[in-house]
């Protein structure tokens, strides 16, 4: 197990390096520059700014400047938010997205797995159909529709919740982002859980457990749940990264100031270092959580050995 984990960490380094290289050159090959705007600057000022950020040098030199900074943990200055470094901006916005994300993840996990199990145990009954109907609705209702509908219902018609803002993460400000974030994940998790739970409940060892006369809750929680969770866990790894790194929709509608908006705005405004910073963050998290999923697999399924 230890060798497996260290091997995964070693493998991650070249992967990350390729990720950084490719996204750096892709980003710089896109037309436009961070300082090209409709109100153009005097050419002398532009030249000064470009010189300050090394933008007048060949891209390959810029790449090595960037890598040099990166090794020291410096993600560079933002081209858009003056006087802020990317480290500061990410340190500011990532905790917000992470807090929304972790709550959404917990809600999605508990409700999704719960719904999936209930639907699987009552397969082809009205319970199953209504739970799965809801799950399908969660998949087809995009969150950019859900978010305005939430505001319309909770804030404008009923005045129950503040329509936006963050306020240090007080719970009234969390409710709507969590709803908008978690619905589609609840639906996906419920679908996957239902499918694998049905398959597990038909397998031989469950029949044995039932023949032994074990009570139903013990069959479900001690015998069926563990193997049934395997496909769910492989979905949860990438899903967790997606949830935690936020959503531009949530940030835009609820004004939470998470990391999702930075990425989109950064890419649109050619804020090179911002895009790179978020890309590196997401890439690292993806690799990390894929490794965690592999480890969890080995813990849950004794058939898997590394």
């Amino acid at each position: 197990m230890f060798t497996f984990i260290s091997k995964r960490i070693l493998e991650a380094i070249p992967t990350l390096l390729i990720l950084i290289t490719v996204s750096f050159f892709l980003m710089h090959s896109a037309p436009g520059s961070p300082f090209s705007s409709e109100r153009s600057l005097p050419p002398e000022v532009l030249a000064n700014i470009n010189a300050k950020y090394h933008l007048d040098e060949p891209v390959i030199n810029q790449y090595f400047y960037y890598l040099g900074g990166l090794i020291q943990g410096d993600l560079g200055p933002s081209f858009r938010y003056k006087d802020f470094t990317i480290n500061e901006l990410i340190a500011q916005s990532f905790p917000v997205s992470a807090e929304i994300g972790i709550w959404s993840f917990l809600v999605a996990l508990i409700l999704g797995v719960g719904c999936g199990i209930i639907a699987a145990l009552r397969q082809n009954s009205w319970v199953d159909y209504s739970v799965m109907g809801f799950a399908n609705l969660g998949i087809v209702l995009p969150n950019f529709v859900l978010a305005p509908l939430c505001i319309l219902f909770f804030s404008i018609y009923n005045h129950w919740l503040p329509p936006g803002g963050w306020n240090g993460g007080a719970w009234p400000y969390l409710v709507m982002p969590v709803i908008a974030m978690s619905t589609s994940y609840i639906a996906q998790i419920a679908r996957i859980t239902r499918g694998s739970m049905i398959e597990t409940m038909h397998s031989n060892f469950i029949r044995t457990a039932r023949a032994k006369g074990l009570p139903k809750y013990r069959i479900i929680f001690q015998h069926a749940l563990r193997p049934a969770m395997l496909p769910v866990i492989s979905y949860l790894g990438p899903a967790f990264v997606g949830i935690v790194t936020g959503s531009v929709i949530v940030d835009v509608y609820f004004g939470t100031g998470g990391i999702g908006q930075h990425f989109i705005n950064g890419a649109l405004n050619r804020d090179y270092s911002m895009v790179m910073g978020v890309t590196i963050l997401v890439g690292t998290l993806t690799i990390l959580f894929n490794a965690i999923v592999d480890v969890l697999y080995a813990v849950i399924d004794p058939k898997i050995r590394y």
Binding site: T15, L16, I18, L19, V22, S23, L26, M27, S29, A30, P31, G32, T245, F263, I264, A267, L268, V275, V278, T279, V282, G283, T286, I287, N290
Partner: peptide
């Protein structure tokens, strides 16, 4: 498969926005 894994660790929206600008 390794190539696929590398592609997979790119943020999807990053690609989309780069393509959009291209």
């Amino acid at each position: 498969m390794r190539f696929l894994e590398i592609l997979n660790s790119f943020p999807f929206m990053f690609f989309v926005i780069i393509l959009m600008t291209l």
